[in-house]
Amino acid sequence: MKFALVTGANKSIGFEVAQQLAQEGMYVYLGSRSLENGVEAVGKLKAKGLNNAEAIQLDITDDESVIKARKEIGKKTNVLYILINNGVFMVVPHKRHLIQRLTSLRQFMTQISTAQCGLRRHLLIY
């Protein structure tokens, strides 16, 4: 069996991607910041007869969470055939320039590094 990980998979596009992969016969890890929301999403897949899915708590902005998820998945498989890095966050300004709306340079850098380097973090940590 081939394994896939989809971050931000408990709703919207991430959920749909996870569902499509499961329908194609892949075993899918649904990454979700909230394990409870991930388990709920897996329940929706199982209700559709897709039993080849599992929730995994994963916050791509938190290194410890990424390491923990990597270790959990590593107990079950040595290879991910597909990684969909859907879980990205961004503060959206309403009227002002982005830099003016952010509370700190650190917050700005966290957002940029998560969006640009999140995929590499998943692949390279540990």
Rank of each mutant, 00 (worst) to 15 (best):
M1Q: 12
F3G: 03
A4N: 07
A4Y: 03
T7W: 06
G8I: 01
G8D: 01
A9T: 04
N10I: 05
N10G: 04
S12W: 00
I13N: 05
I13K: 07
I13S: 04
G14H: 02
G14P: 02
F15D: 01
E16A: 09
V17N: 06
V17P: 01
Q19Y: 02
Q19C: 08
Q20W: 07
Q20E: 14
Q20F: 10
Q20L: 10
Q20D: 13
L21Q: 05
L21E: 05
L21W: 03
A22C: 08
Q23G: 09
E24N: 09
E24L: 11
G25V: 12
M26W: 04
Y27K: 14
Y27F: 15
V28F: 00
V28E: 00
V28K: 01
V28C: 00
V28D: 00
Y29S: 04
L30Y: 01
L30H: 02
L30I: 02
G31S: 13
R33K: 10
S34F: 10
L35F: 13
E36N: 10
N37Y: 11
N37S: 12
G38W: 02
V39F: 01
V39D: 06
E40D: 07
G43Q: 05
K44P: 03
K46R: 12
K46I: 11
K48A: 14
K48L: 13
K48D: 09
G49L: 04
G49Y: 04
N51H: 11
N51C: 04
N52G: 05
N52V: 09
A53M: 04
E54S: 11
E54F: 05
E54N: 05
E54T: 06
I56M: 11
Q57D: 09
L58V: 03
L58A: 02
D59C: 13
D59R: 12
D59P: 05
D59Y: 09
I60T: 09
D62N: 10
D62A: 03
D62H: 06
D63H: 03
D63Q: 08
E64Q: 03
E64I: 01
V66G: 02
V66P: 02
I67E: 00
A69E: 11
A69R: 13
R70P: 13
R70D: 12
K71I: 14
I73V: 08
G74A: 15
K75C: 15
K75R: 15
K76W: 02
L83A: 10
L83S: 06
I84A: 02
N85S: 10
G87P: 01
F89E: 08
F89S: 12
V91S: 09
V92A: 14
V92T: 12
V92M: 15
P93E: 07
P93K: 07
H94A: 13
H94L: 12
H94G: 13
H94P: 00
H94D: 13
R96C: 01
R96L: 08
R96A: 09
L98S: 02
I99A: 14
R101S: 07
R101K: 10
L102K: 06
L102V: 12
L102D: 06
L102E: 11
S104W: 04
R106G: 11
Q107M: 07
Q107F: 08
F108T: 03
M109I: 04
M109T: 06
M109H: 06
T110E: 15
Q111F: 12
Q111A: 13
S113H: 10
A115P: 06
Q116P: 07
Q116H: 14
G118H: 10
G118L: 11
L119I: 12
L119R: 06
R120E: 12
R120T: 09
H122Y: 13
L123D: 15
I125P: 04
Y126L: 12
Y126D: 11
